[in-house]
Design a protein around this nucleic acid. Structure first.
Lengths: 110, 110
DNA sequence: CTATATGCATAATTCACTTATGTATTAATC
DNA sequence: GATTAATACATAAGTGAATTATGCATATAG
């Protein structure tokens, strides 16, 4: 498990990129996918995930669609056009940051 | 300038690694060195730097030596043996995190 | 029948940071 | 020679994204 400190500020980027790659996802699915992709190293908590999704929605980057699965509610999130246009920017911002950190820490990152 | 959100949690690692590579530094010198290494992209604020240095000192990772330069105070920080032994760990923790993020975001980082 | 997994949500708290402020010396500029 | 910028330290107030804790509800496995 990664030191949660490092994760700060990366959650939105993760959510946006995941939705870009996958198209349409619901909250619980996101936690599972991130767990898979990170090999169990990043475990999103609901307390972080849901408020973050709500915020992205309020900012107009995501839109939702609620579906009843039997008696259980499932809320799908999709990128809006605005959201879609921001994903690349956010990801490359992250990559740039990582390169900078590589220089400061004098380490190779591959 | 990088989104400061991403920087969260990386400050201690930066400080420790810098002191490992350079041996002995004072606060202002650290801000300048980080600015240089990051090509102006990471600008440490005093409000973040000094409390962080104090904390590392309180935890026994750094020790200090105050020197008078003429009439001006200069406080040098050096790694303690405990600090020295933690640097590698912290750096590789960061590198691991970056690799994980690369997988989650599906991007190449070099 | 009881624990685990699925599924959403929010309130209280924490803590690393930003912003703002304070003090003081030295060098540069006008 | 006066003002600005750079050097050098420090701390207090405020912010905001996270953690932790809690709540509700259905479905599945042992």
């Amino acid at each position: 498990m990664h030191s949660p400190e490092l994760l700060k500020g990366t959650l939105q980027t993760i959510l946006l990129k995941l939705l870009k790659d996958h198209g349409k996802m619901y909250g619980y699915e996101i936690t599972q996918r991130v767990k898979e992709l990170s090999d169990g190293r990043i475990l999103l908590t609901e307390g972080a995930l849901y408020p973050s999704l709500h915020k992205l929605e309020a900012e107009g980057l995501l839109k939702t669609e609620t579906v009843m699965m039997g008696k259980r509610v499932r809320k799908y999130y999709t990128l809006t056009p605005v959201g879609k246009s921001l994903v690349k920017e956010r990801v490359s911002e992250f990559v740039d940051f990582i390169r900078t950190m590589g220089n400061v820490l004098q380490v190779e990152l591959n």
